[in-house]
Simulated scan of single mutants.
Amino acid sequence: MAAAVISTHDGPIAWVKLNRPERLNAMNRQLVDELAAALLSADAEDSIRVVILHGEGRAFCSGDDLKDLDVQTESEIATQAWVEAIQNITLQIMQSSKIVIAAVHGWCVGGALEWAINCDFRLFADNTRWFFPEVSFGFFVTGGVTALLTKQVGPQIAKELIMFGERHNADKALEVGIAWKLVPEKDLLGEAERLALMVAERPANSVASIKHAINDGFHSSLHDAMAIETAATVRGFLSAEAQARARRT
């Protein structure tokens, strides 16, 4: 079985690549579990200062792989475990002592967009297309975005983005504050590396302390938001209407 996530170390940088290009790096259990292991490994390695999360092929990640919907919804226990595995990535990113940079290109959809929002810096290539599809299926968002996105873009814009699920370009991501910076696709990984090396020049303890202080202060309701999201997402996945809508895609 091919690796769904490839992690390599280059000096102070861990390059973590989502590697299911034939499915636009869609999220299945293998990818989520391997991503969790890669993030855990990077966090445990003292020489690693920054993680760059990126995608192989034509997309960062196209969100949940709905071809696995039957497996994800075979029981309430299975659905709960799937949603908690997705939410665990949020906790790993936000609670890590490393700075995590999302280098986003192509499609960035649903849970993948939520993971990108969890990252400390978000570089978007100029060809990025992004949206939240969950509500259109009858599902629900994860990644703490009901708290994080609301505080970043304001409640009206957060409701618009999540509720309507319209597809947006990279300029819109910069306009509302989801993207930190836009770069040409050909320069995306080089710009991510440049940023990572800037971070790595700073004292590790100070950088980690600043990250956690800002995350814990600005996003103080993250855990409460994720608990609400998990319960609502499990209900959505198990809804017959939502499953029927998802299978029509």
Rank of each mutant, 00 (worst) to 15 (best):
N127I: 01
S97A: 12
E45T: 10
V71M: 10
W115H: 10
A103Q: 03
E56D: 10
V83L: 02
G143W: 01
G106V: 02
W82K: 00
A116S: 03
K67P: 09
R49S: 11
R49W: 12
D70Y: 08
T79W: 07
G138C: 07
A37D: 13
G111E: 00
N28R: 10
R49E: 15
K67T: 09
S96R: 04
K67L: 04
M94T: 08
S62Y: 04
D120T: 09
V104H: 07
A81G: 06
S47K: 05
A112T: 09
R29A: 13
C61A: 15
A81V: 02
Q95S: 04
W130F: 15
V32F: 08
V104A: 12
T73L: 06
C108I: 01
I48D: 00
D70V: 13
S136I: 09
F60W: 10
A44K: 15
F140M: 05
A116L: 03
S97N: 09
F124M: 03
I77E: 15
G110D: 11
V32W: 00
I117Q: 06
A59E: 02
G57V: 09
L31W: 01
S96F: 09
S47H: 09
T73R: 02
D70A: 14
A59G: 05
R58T: 14
V51T: 11
F124W: 01
R49F: 11
L123N: 05
A78R: 08
M94V: 10
L123P: 09
D120F: 08
S75L: 13
Q92P: 11
C61L: 05
R49K: 14
F140S: 08
S62T: 03
I77P: 00
L31S: 09
F137T: 00
S62Q: 03
A44C: 04
D68N: 11
A36R: 00
L66V: 04
Q87T: 14
F131Q: 13
S136G: 08
F139W: 12
W82H: 05
E76L: 15
N118H: 04
D70Q: 05
R58C: 05
L91F: 15
R122Y: 02
Q87L: 11
W107H: 07
G57A: 12
N118C: 13
A102Y: 02
D46G: 10
A112W: 01
L39E: 03
W82P: 12
L35G: 01
N88H: 13
L39Q: 02
V100N: 04
G111S: 07
W107N: 04
S75E: 05
S41L: 08
I117W: 08
N118Q: 05
G55E: 00
A85M: 07
V51K: 05
G110V: 04
N88G: 11
V104G: 00
N88D: 14
M94H: 06
W115S: 02
F60E: 01
P133Y: 10
T90V: 02
T73W: 15
Q72S: 11
T73Q: 10
D126G: 06
I93T: 01
L40D: 15
L91A: 07
A59R: 03
G138K: 12
L35E: 05
A42Q: 06
G63C: 09
G144V: 07
R58F: 14
L31G: 14
S62N: 02
L113C: 06
D64Y: 02
A125Q: 09
E76M: 11
I117G: 13
L69I: 10
I86G: 04
